[in-house]
């Protein structure tokens, strides 16, 4: 009854350093290794490919980092990508802007549904968003009539294959969004309230914070970012494929967030770490493929890294 719950375990300094900087160090090591031993690594062509591949995961992971910061999780992101992808061809006849706009609105609505279930109805995030993980893809397939549709809109195709200053447009978009989300977390009232709600919900409520509004907004942001990723993935693929697009993205996004040092217990959001986490996972796959190791090996290595990341987090609590 009165046992001291705050008998904090003393973590070693190495553990603490690894927790805070391990993901950056790992990225640096992998980059260094590839520069030395992988042919064609440091070419514009290869770097562009890596950026394009990591960008959609990264964008989804940004929203995921916010949701995890509130002590929640959003399992529906992959299906929301599919919903956005399915909506695009339906409205591209009216032009690029209305189609993309509606896809984003669809993402926001999906997020609002998740947010309402979590913040207002009070369902556990993992269950609330599981519903849309299952239902969202079904919905997307209904929209698309179960079909894969080729994209012929030039603006959308340009979004998928365009470059600016030698870097893919998709990469620029991901970078801008990452900076924007970082600024929101750090410098806005909403961002600070998000971290507070995740850190101690009851204390936040007693301090008069609009807890429900903060949670709802967070899930809407996650939904919109997932829709952005769905649009970009579609543009890149030059086809809307609601049965395949975004599958297992929720797991890749959670991995990037966790490996990047954001604790699943909430109260802390590390955007730069999330970026590094996404990049690290991409680099692992790329490196092993370059050395002719199968994808399954990459998965095993990634699993090991997740365990290490979670272990480091645990020691810090």
């Amino acid at each position: 009854m009165t046992a001291d719950p705050r008998a904090e375990p003393r973590t070693g300094r190495l553990t603490a350093w690894l927790r805070d900087n391990g993901v950056y160090a790992a990225v640096a090591v992998l980059v260094g290794y590839n520069l030395l031993f992988s042919a064609n690594f440091a070419t514009w062509g290869n770097l562009g490919t890596q950026v394009v591949q990591v960008a959609p995961v990264l964008i989804v992971a940004l929203g995921m980092a916010l949701v995890i910061g509130t002590e929640g999780v959003d399992l529906s992101v992959g299906s929301v990508m599919a919903v956005a992808a399915a909506i695009l061809p339906l409205y591209l006849g009216y032009g690029f802007v209305p189609a993309v706009g509606l896809a984003l609105v669809a993402g926001a609505l999906c997020g609002a549904l998740n947010g309402t279930l979590v913040a207002v109805v009070g369902i556990q995030p993992i269950v609330a968003t599981l519903a849309l993980l299952v239902g969202g893809r079904g919905l997307a397939l209904v929209f698309a009539d179960g079909q894969l549709t080729d994209i012929r809109n030039d603006d959308l195709l340009a979004l998928g294959s365009g470059e600016l200053l030698g870097i893919p447009t998709i990469g620029w978009i991901a970078a801008v969004l990452a900076v924007a989300v970082w600024l929101v977390v750090r410098y806005t009232t909403f961002g600070r309230q998000l971290v507070a709600v995740g850190g101690n919900r009851s204390a936040s409520a007693l301090a008069g914070l609009p807890v429900r509004r903060v949670l709802l907004t967070t899930y809407v942001i996650s939904g919109v970012l997932a829709a952005v990723a769905g649009i970009l993935a579609t543009a890149r693929l030059t086809a809307s494929d609601p049965s395949a697009i975004g599958t297992l993205y929720e797991l890749s996004a959670i991995t990037a967030v966790v490996v990047g040092g954001t604790p699943l217990s909430g109260g802390r959001v590390r955007i730069l770490g999330t970026v590094a986490g996404a990049v690290l996972m991409q680099l692992i796959t790329a490196t092993l493929i370059k050395h002719n190791l199968p994808d399954s090996t990459a998965q095993i290595v990634q699993a090991a890294i997740i365990l290490v990341a979670v272990h480091l987090q645990r020691g810090s609590r």
Binding site: V195, A196, G199, N200, S202, A203, S204, L206, G267, R268
Partner: peptide
């Protein structure tokens, strides 16, 4: 439980 945010 209801007051501090220990990590902030």
């Amino acid at each position: 439980a209801d007051g501090i945010l220990p990590d902030l």
